[in-house]
Structure formats: structure tokens, C-alpha cells
Design a protein around this nucleic acid. Structure first.
Lengths: 111, 111
DNA sequence: CCAATATACCTCGCCTGTCAAGGTATTATT
DNA sequence: AATAATACCTTGACAGGCGAGGTATATTGG
């Protein structure tokens, strides 16, 4: 297990929803953006990414459609739904309170 | 899955090490302290707690010994090792950088 | 006195998210 | 012609969390 994988676990869907919040995107691009945003410190593994897409689509938080590029490899674009947006906000709130809770639980006085 | 379970995943060991950092303790007490610290918002499930103890002991981060109470149910006390302490510090550092990374990845500009 | 509750430990087996490994297809570069 | 980059996908294993079940002792309310 890499350093951060278990700490990131559970955030994959939020990360994807965040990427899709402003504009539709596709798997390969989303992952590149994540790598850029973290300066290479983190990337989603493909299997993780695609299984997250399946879950999110099944849950109605994203929709997908094939791009109409007439050159290059085909792309499956994903679009966040209204439900996806409200879930995103919920996830952010959960993260903020979880963050506080974890901080309080792992802190040792005077260390 | 409860609200926080997947967000807490991966912090169980750090939480336990933090509890043991200042004084030896035992499973039941550790869990009570966690519930108090979080005002009942969180508790470790027993199966989670004990499997974490097994992992931590196997990894040499904690030692255990039976308490010598001559009344009440027997208690198995756990003690953090030197290796456990240094690992605790490493985990805290990892958490701090993971926290920053997650924050930057799930933020949407202007939302 | 005895039933219920609290204290305190433990294991088994399932579930879920991650990921290594493997695959396909197209286009650009060397 | 070979390699790399783009772009998609599935399968099966693994690990941590946890529901469900179990054991034993002490206390407390009715």
C-alpha cells in the first residue's frame, strides 16, 4: 500500500465529482488533472477510477456519453447530475467534520 | 456504511496509538475514551478495534500484558513501543500532508 | 434472588474500495 | 516498423471495517 492510499480511500468519488463540477470530462483527462494538481504526488489507479465511475453512474450522480471526436481514441465523457452536485456538497460537509474529528482523535497533548 | 466509516478508515491505528501514547490502556477503555472525545459521534466497532490490536502488535508498535485486577473482568492492557511512537509521528505527518492534498483535490473554484 | 446491564474479552465470515495485471484500439513519433 | 501516448475496459486478489455471534464476571434495580 502506498503512503496515502488508505488515507485517500473514500475520497475518490468526491475528487471525481469535484473535477466534473465545472465541466464535463473523461477518465484519462481527470486523472491527468489530478496528477497536475498534486504535482505528481497522487494519481488514481485506472481500475479505481473506472470502478468509481460505475458506482457514481449507478447511483445517478453522474451521466456519461461518448464524445464525437473524429480523430484519436474514443472518449467517454462524464457529466455531473443535479443529484451529484448536492451529494458533492454533502460530501464536503462530511469531510470537514470528519477532518475535525480525526484531528481531535489523533492528537496527543504535549507531543 | 455509516457517514464517516470510509473517511475514518486508515486512521484506526493512529487513533489507538494516540490513546496509548500517554498511558497504557485496554480495549474497552480506549473505545469509551473515543466516544467521550467525540461526544458519541464516533466509536470503534469491537471487531475493528481488536483486529487493529492484532496488526499493531504483530508489527511491533504495541505490546500487551494482562492486568492484575483481582475483581471484575480481566483486562488486556496495551503499551506503545518506541517503534510505535516513531510510527505515530510518521502517521501524523502523513495525515497532515494527505489532508492538504485532499482539500486541494476536492475544492471547486467559486463553489 | 434474579434478571438485566455493564464491563471486558474474542472470532468468523461477509462486504466494499483499491489496485496489479491483463487486455483492446487509435494516433503520433522516432 | 517499433515505441510511446492516448483512451478505454475487466478480472481477481487483498485488506480493513464490521455485523453477528460467542464467553465470563460484577453490579444494580425490582
Amino acid at each position: 500500500m502506498s503512503i496515502t492510499s488508505d488515507l485517500i480511500r473514500g475520497h475518490t468519488e468526491t475528487i471525481i465529482l469535484a473535477q466534473l463540477y465545472n465541466h464535463d470530462s473523461y477518465g484519462y483527462e481527470i486523472n491527468k488533472e489530478i496528477q497536475q494538481r498534486t504535482k505528481g504526488k497522487y494519481e488514481l489507479k485506472e481500475a479505481t477510477l473506472y470502478s468509481a465511475f460505475r458506482r457514481l453512474e449507478k447511483a445517478g450522480l453522474i451521466d456519461s456519453y461518448w464524445g464525437d471526436e473524429n480523430t484519436g481514441a474514443r472518449r467517454r465523457y462524464y457529466k455531473i447530475t443535479e443529484s451529484g452536485k448536492s451529494n458533492y456538497h454533502r460530501l464536503i460537509k462530511e469531510w470537514n467534520s470528519a477532518k475535525e474529528m480525526i484531528d481531535s482523535l489523533i492528537k496527543v497533548e504535549g507531543v
